[in-house]
């Protein structure tokens, strides 16, 4: 084996030495990074730059050379509001409805997600029967396609769905879940939590298992109650992991689109229309296709996601630094 590798290395060594002489040893690192940087630039930076071009140009033409430069007009249209709280006072009311729906959704979804994931992780971390089975059960929805999740729940919740059939059978009478704005929104939050909780439970479970056993043993010897142990030991030691989970859930919440779009289509009215759906409809589904407006909205969302990602990096670092 060595007999094959050594001559090969010698062949590679010749251009590498030449390159090292040309660039110097410190700058050689860039040469190693270059292939990755080219790929990353092509698939990450180039779309961002193109997005900026689209956001600052008008018309429904897709080709950049046919799009007139309009500066900040698209951003102006999105941000033109009498009162940002009242979407009806905004020129682009659908954008602001989507923004406030997203804010409410993300707050509720991330809150419930962390809460339920923590509860589940604590239960699954305990000595319960068929622990492995239950861990799989809670993780299973994560493996489902978002569209499948949406279709399953639509089948359950539609007017003549499984849930209403059951309610009718019990004599309680069905509810038109998907036609009522508040119910539709509530179910959207529930489904999102149900579908993704397994992933966050897994992270928290790993966090729980990383807490040293001897701390709990000491607490038991001191006669601390279960609740006190949870409040004074588990929660503080798990806090960095929970912060990571919270930030990840917030990022995921802002990006929500596929499963809710397939579930309610954003309705009733605009009750479950979130920001990514607004961007999709403006840029691709509606007529005319307002790529500029969609690109401007997506840059604003990107700004929010950058802030959340920085928060996640900070939380991760805090976690590592202990």
């Amino acid at each position: 084996m060595l007999a094959v590798i050594t001559p090969l290395m010698r062949i590679i060594e010749i251009p590498m030495l030449a390159l090292q002489r040309l660039l110097g040893i410190n700058r050689l690192a860039w040469a190693f990074l270059l292939p990755n940087l080219i790929l990353f630039g092509l698939f990450a930076f180039l779309p961002v730059i193109l997005n900026v071009f689209y956001a600052t140009s008008g018309s429904d033409n897709v080709l950049l050379q046919n799009r007139p430069f309009v500066g900040g007009q698209n951003f102006g249209q999105l941000l033109d509001c009498g009162n940002y709280i009242d979407a009806n006072s905004c020129r682009e009311d659908k954008f602001w409805r989507a923004v406030w729906n997203t804010v409410t959704f993300v707050t509720l979804q991330a809150g419930f997600m962390v809460g339920f994931a923590l509860l589940t992780a604590v239960i699954l971390n305990g000595r319960i029967r068929a622990r492995g089975f239950f861990r799989s059960v809670f993780f299973f929805p994560v493996l489902l396609s978002p569209v499948v999740v949406a279709l399953i729940w639509k089948w359950i919740l539609q007017r003549e769905g499984v849930l209403n059939a059951f309610l009718d059978w019990t004599g309680l009478g069905g509810i038109n879940w998907l036609v009522d704005a508040q119910w539709a929104f509530g179910w959207s939050v529930f489904i999102s939590v149900w579908a993704h909780m397994g992933f966050y439970t897994l992270i928290l479970l790993a966090g729980l298992q990383a807490i040293p056993r001897d701390v709990y043993e000491a607490a038991t010897m001191d006669g601390a109650s279960g609740w006190r142990t949870f409040r004074r030991i588990t929660l503080p030691l798990l806090a960095p992991t929970m912060l990571v989970v919270l930030v990840l859930a917030l990022i995921r919440g802002v990006q929500t689109f596929d499963e809710i779009y397939a579930f309610t289509g954003g309705g009733p009215g605009t009750a479950t229309t979130f920001i990514i759906q607004y961007i999709y409809e403006r840029g691709f589904a509606g007529a005319p296709r307002l790529f500029g407006l969609a690109a401007a909205a997506s840059l604003l969302v990107a700004g929010v996601l950058v802030v959340l990602t920085l928060a996640q990096l900070w939380a991760n670092r805090r976690n590592v630094d202990g």
Partner: peptide, 10 residues
């Protein structure tokens, strides 16, 4: 149901 249970122009 037909008009209210959907969003956008779906």
């Amino acid at each position: 149901d037909v008009w209210a249970s959907q969003g956008g122009a779906t």
